[in-house]
Design a protein around this nucleic acid. Structure first.
Lengths: 140, 140
DNA sequence: TATATACCCGACTAAAATAGTCAAGTATTA
DNA sequence: TAATACTTGACTATTTTAGTCGGGTATATA
């Protein structure tokens, strides 16, 4: 079970942004250099973050991206939903032809995966960007 | 974040086996039919389960596989480790050349992924095969 | 107003992982 | 001696991932 780089880079980049004054735009070029993430790839990622209203863009020179909310109020779950589709460990389709129509005898493990998804989502629901910045301080 | 079919099928197959008398061998053919999993693929999976001493094989006609332990004592974490490598959401190599050598400024999110791994592994550590069989009964 | 900066966006691609299949066995029981 | 069922390594098609490329557009500032 692996996390893809898109989700990972998204969190890294946003965490990076959180460390700078929140009102002035941060350019992808800077993030790219600081975090060693390809600029072109970052652009792709930020397009999604923008569409999902996590950041807004400021065009032109000295432009960049700005967080739309206080890092304290940006949950990791939002970020994941924006770049990845969602944490969905297994694709037991509702209308599948073979087995697993919800409660069939076949899909004994159906409930397990549902439970797992909830469990993992719960982790991301309860973490926000500012949590990442404090290393040993208490969560506020 | 997705689970692969190998892990999923392994759990399904073993859960299936748990529903039958534990001392008589269950053939992969039967599991294949009941769970709609390719027989050839099951063979590959059971090879790993056997190597990791979760099941043992009984050759010849009327043969099949037998669980080596009571389902109550087979943790899902064992199964995952047997077929998949492990839950390791991110590959921040210890000796990486670019960034992230444990505590570097770059890898702000390093601790996060470690925490996530622990969290998920915890889920699998605390579930065993027999948990899957009881739908609404209390965990014993 | 020119130019550099930086976002915008769809299409493309190489590489890796996944999800199997195939072939050619061996062991055991009825 | 069939038939059943495990054994094993190699092979392959498909999908996903992790990016790259090219050609834009908008804006600040010199």
């Amino acid at each position: 079970m692996k996390l893809n780089t898109k989700s990972r880079y998204a969190v890294m980049a946003l965490a990076d942004m959180s460390k700078f004054p929140l009102d002035s735009p941060v350019s992808l070029r800077d993030i790219s250099l600081r975090q060693s993430i390809s600029l072109l790839y970052l652009e792709q990622i930020f397009l999604k973050l923008k569409k999902n209203e996590i950041v807004k863009s400021v065009r032109g020179s000295n432009g960049g991206y700005v967080l739309r909310k206080d890092p304290k109020n940006i949950k990791l779950s939002e970020i994941f939903q924006a770049v990845d589709q969602k944490v969905k460990t297994v694709g037991c389709k509702k209308d599948s032809k073979k087995g697993c129509n919800g409660k069939s005898a076949k899909c004994i493990t159906h409930e397990l995966w549902d439970e797992l998804d909830l469990y993992i989502n719960n982790f991301f629901e309860n973490k926000n960007l500012s949590d990442l910045l404090m290393t040993k301080e208490r969560k506020n």
